[in-house]
Design a protein around this nucleic acid. Structure first.
Length: 181
DNA sequence: AAGAAGATTCGCT
DNA sequence: GCGAATCTTCTTA
């Protein structure tokens, strides 16, 4: 599913306006993965991961940022996909205002950056991404380019597995340019 | 009740 | 490349 989500469009409707972007980078956190928040069972934080698929799992990281995930398994099974980067589509000036930076390439190229650009926080945790009025996930509108995979970023546990997926050559992928090749 | 670690980003060297 | 920022969550005592 992490691979399949490349090219889908994440749309955020808020009072300030609409922002959206094409998903160009994801990471999978499957069942049995020691790096997954769901690995040690259900808790107050990760409870959404054990609910229905295609719902938003939003958590705080390092005390200052938010990360957005798409749940991926049926009720009772804890797993999800971290959305790591978007190619900005709508609301670019609003994203600039929220992020405090100008270059389009820096607006959504990282999990916490895209959450800030789309004003995603804990209030969206648990939302149905196929039916919610404020945040929605739409199928690809255009052809998706070739997809690459690599080890995941920033992890200590199970870092060797090829569970990161990205659109090859996209300038909107997180990290240094080599990560998009 | 206290402490350590964390799916990151940014600024400075 | 390195360290700080900053706080929630989970683990251990």
């Amino acid at each position: 599913m992490a691979r399949a989500l490349i090219g889908w469009v994440l749309v955020r409707h808020s009072a300030a306006g609409t922002t959206s972007g094409r998903i160009v980078e994801t990471e999978a956190y499957p069942v049995g993965d020691p790096a997954s928040h769901a690995f040690r069972g259900e808790t107050a934080r990760n409870r959404v991961m054990f609910g229905q698929p295609f719902h938003a799992y939003v958590y705080r990281i390092y005390g200052r940022y938010w990360c957005f995930n798409v749940t991926s398994e049926p009720r009772g099974v804890g797993a999800g996909v971290l959305v790591r980067a978007l190619e900005p589509l709508e609301g670019i000036d609003l994203m600039r205002k929220r992020r405090g930076v100008e270059p389009v390439r820096l607006l959504c190229s990282g999990p916490a950056r895209l959450a800030q650009a789309l004003d995603i926080d804990r209030s969206l945790d648990g939302r149905d991404l196929l039916a919610d009025p404020e945040i929605e996930l739409l199928p690809p509108r255009q052809a998706t380019g070739p997809i690459g995979s690599s080890r995941r970023i920033g992890l200590t546990a199970a870092a060797h597995r090829l569970l990161r997926f990205y659109e090859r050559g996209s300038p909107y992928v997180s990290g240094p340019r080599r990560l998009s090749r």
